[in-house]
Amino acid sequence: MTEILQVRGLVAGYGAAPVLRDIDLTVPTGSIVTVLGANGAGKTTLLRTLSGLLRPTAGQILLDGKDLRRVKVERLVRLGMAHVPEGRGVVAELTVDENLRLGGLWRNDVNAAVAEVYELFEPLAQRKRNAGHLLSGGERQMLAIGRALVARPRLLLLDEPSLGLAPKITAQIMALLQKLRTQTGLTVLLVEQNARSALSVADSGVVMSLGRIATATTAQELRNAYLGS
């Protein structure tokens, strides 16, 4: 068993017409897989369906071989899958510390997990008592990722972490993902518009177009095809 996540024949959408059509996707354990695609291709919809926020009309989602269809959204994080949503989802009314603790309230070791995140993201440690809405865009992204890490996930779903960030910060985040992968064996499913950054760390990737997987191949081939180098 080497793939943590397997998706087969997934169909999902918001109304009558499906947005996702017949999606097949395999994420090997310990890899970084990126999902690329134009605006409106269905990347966010794919992640929302994986997390159970949208119920698929057909197909299978297997986490460690276990079918997720009947699993409640709020159980998934306990099964090892954390989702950093589009727009980061920092709770503006709560403090940085409360946001972080929220990431793992059910864990006995939540305090230790939060402390580790403060070590990882030092700027957050200085702003523990600040409300979420006072943070800068970069700090918010750190908080959102840090909060997901408090759950000590094995699979991390990230929806456009680079959105609105300076290239330098984006590079730091990508480097962090790579570090986490090598140090803890974290698997990452990384949705990105910024193909250059994503492909700099990804092992493999898929390109979505109009709700389908148009291409699925190694990161190297995608780099050759899309970045022309």
């Binding site: 994080v77 709770v91 409360e98 909060r147």
Partner: peptide, 14 residues
Amino acid sequence: RAAAFAPEVSRLLG
């Protein structure tokens, strides 16, 4: 409080 302010995010966080 989290559930009231941000229900969807809260669900994702368990």
